[in-house]
Write a protein that binds this DNA or RNA. Sequence first.
RNA 1: GGAGGGGUUCCCGAGUGGCCAAAGGGGGCAGACUGUAAAUCUGUUGGCGACGCCUUCGGAGGUUCAAAUCCUCCCCCCUCCA
Length: 407
Amino acid sequence: MISLNEQMDIINRGSKEIISEDELAGKIESSIQTGIPLTVKWGADPSAPDIHLGHTVSIRKLKQFQDLGHRVVFIIGDFTAMIGDPSGKTIARKRLSRQQVIQNAETYKQQIFRILDPEKTVVEFNNRWCSALSFEEILNLTSKYTIARMLERDDFENRYRTGQPITIMEFLYPLIQGYDSVALKADIELGGTDQKFNLLVARDIQREYGQMPQVVITMPLLVGTDGTQKMSKSLDNYIALDDPPEQMYGKTMSVPDELIHPYFELLTDVAGEEFKQIKKLLADPKCNPMELKKQLAKRLVTMYYDPQKAETAEREFDTIFRKKETPEQIAVHHLSANLLWIVKLLTEVEFASSNNEARRLIQQGAVSIDGTRIADPELTIKFKGGEVLKVGKKKFVRLEIGCCIDS
RNA sequence: GGAGGGGUUCCCGAGUGGCCAAAGGGGGCAGACUGUAAAUCUGUUGGCGACGCCUUCGGAGGUUCAAAUCCUCCCCCCUCCA
């Protein structure tokens, strides 16, 4: 096994906070002595099965734990998801059926195993122990925590102050999550900095149950493609692991330049000299940040796909956005008629969701056919097949005559 | 249980009888510029083959020539007191 200092070093890299380092050192030490790996816990809500780069910050850290010989437990919070979490204003977030949960869990696994080693990963559903809890035990759990302490949490405090609803169930959430740690006898739990409160509650709960409290490791939150808020699905500022290569590349290029540095740091393996070099170039006004961003984008696509796909994605990006040319491969649409009103054409190929939107696009000069801009929304066009329709910067389709799809 | 405040378009939020498809901001989309789907600037942002018509301000009714705005009932949220 790797020495204590080396382990501490690796774990520290990129982490925001470790509570506490001494405890962690103690745990690692005894693990080295006994040969028993530490249990590292990481949880996810099964309702949104799209894993994105924001998640990978933690997942990559978990991978390091695996490489150090420890045991990673991935918890799928199906119990709470099945109750239906009414948090925020979105009333009655859909309850998930057993089947959906299992399905989502599968997509989760398929995604996280692009980083983690499936052999060394235990997947658990918290429903297994949570549904066995009696009401009495739950009351017991709730008696261990106070409202005042709950309101210490930023998010709760904010909502309380601004008059937004907080349900009792949300108060139970951290307790349940803490109970998960008890059930697993977790040695370490990992999470984003926004999870800090919950992770700390788990320590108290574990103590109540006579266990050694888990070490809490928080990872920095990744800022999303919008450059301001944390990457999340609901804000639609995310780059998903399942995004196709071109999109992964393109979305990375759409990230504000200031994010190049943190992205390299949190999402890739660049370290040491190479990282210093990148930092230097970013600070140099003579250096075009686009070049570094391209490197970053290519690197990410290579990580989750392969070098060839990264190459293709880059070429396509250059073609479309730098040279403003038509990409090599574009989708084909079979026209419903060869004489077509331009507005209908746009809705037919689903580049516009309504006639009004189509008109707007035309009036704004976004529409062209074979490179000729269409400015008149009343135009009717006769097609002979093979024309390329372009809307905006990134939507292309080749038009062919005839629609004999489901004959 | 009592008193008060509130529900407006994708989101936040103004509007308290006609000038309201509804200010402003955010987000989205588009254009210009460019070294990038960066930044910046500008435009646009309910629907309909359309100088008109239809639908939208929590829900259902009503008053009025005219309702997001007034009245009645209902639903939901928040705050304070108990």
